[in-house]
Design a protein around this nucleic acid. Structure first.
Lengths: 138, 138
DNA sequence: CACAAAGATGCAACATTGTTGCAAAAATAA
DNA sequence: TTATTTTTGCAACAATGTTGCATCTTTGTG
């Protein structure tokens, strides 16, 4: 169990519990790769499904993690990068869904293209998913 | 029942049935606005839920409609624009989700920004959703 | 038009994802 | 250690989506 996990929970002002530590540890291990609630349920043995949903919701509201709707119908979750801890989010990065290995990856290094909407739209969040075949699968 | 519906079904080489006509008519009426399976179920009275799922799947595979994962957890569907009938899709347009009126709109007029992925990624589809407040709600 | 073949529908049953209420347990503050 | 607050775990439920199978409809052909 890394210090990073305790640190993150502390900074998010969340109580430290066994389940939270394990779920967050799993998400840290997962790195760039976004994983589903179901994945976590299998990785964290013995965790209660309902508790897990609540933990994920709490983490997301605290800005520790973000969710991705990658088009598979299953919500995926991934750690937010360091820049988005502390209040404001900067989750506006690309996600890549590979139809071969069925993984969803955060591509934080790829620069997000600017989008020009008519000025009467208020833009709050960009959710960009690119689907195709990832570098390891072709 | 507009001719457009029969025309679309014909071009897609799909058998013409009451349910398909009604579902497609509903999607035509809905225009730019993407609607959920549940919405359609209420708009097309008496339609069987399972049949509806199958019709939507068929329409999507035929390129008549496209689906949008807007982050609400409910898949939304909308007619494809004229350009994407006939084999190849050009569904790479933006979608806007308004958190006030909770509608999802296809913004086909907004030009999609080019995205530069590392060359070892094969890009097949772009699923871009912008969330915020739409022009009618602020 | 009638008939046969192919395809679509409707129903039951089931799987998965996600939510709510509530009592018991655990974490923090005093 | 005790009191307060929060979190957990369970039951029950709701929504979305899928599969198998018998029945009905559509469509092509004589």
């Amino acid at each position: 169990m890394s210090d990073k996990v305790l640190d993150l929970l502390h900074k998010a002002e969340l109580r430290i519990t066994k389940s939270r530590r394990e779920v967050l540890e799993t998400l840290v291990q997962s790195g760039d790769q976004a994983i589903s609630s179901n994945d976590i349920e299998h990785l964290v043995r013995g965790i209660d499904r309902i508790t897990l949903y609540r933990i994920l919701k709490t983490f997301e509201e605290s800005g520790l993690i973000h969710s991705v709707a990658d088009g598979t119908g299953k919500t995926k979750y991934a750690l937010c990068s360091h820049e988005c801890n502390g209040g404001e989010h900067h989750d506006d990065h690309l996600h890549f869904y590979c139809r071969i290995c069925e993984t969803t990856t955060c591509l934080e290094k790829v620069q997000l293209p600017p989008v020009r909407l008519p000025s009467d739209y208020l833009v709050e969040e960009k959710r960009f998913v690119i689907a195709g075949v990832c570098k390891d699968c072709h």
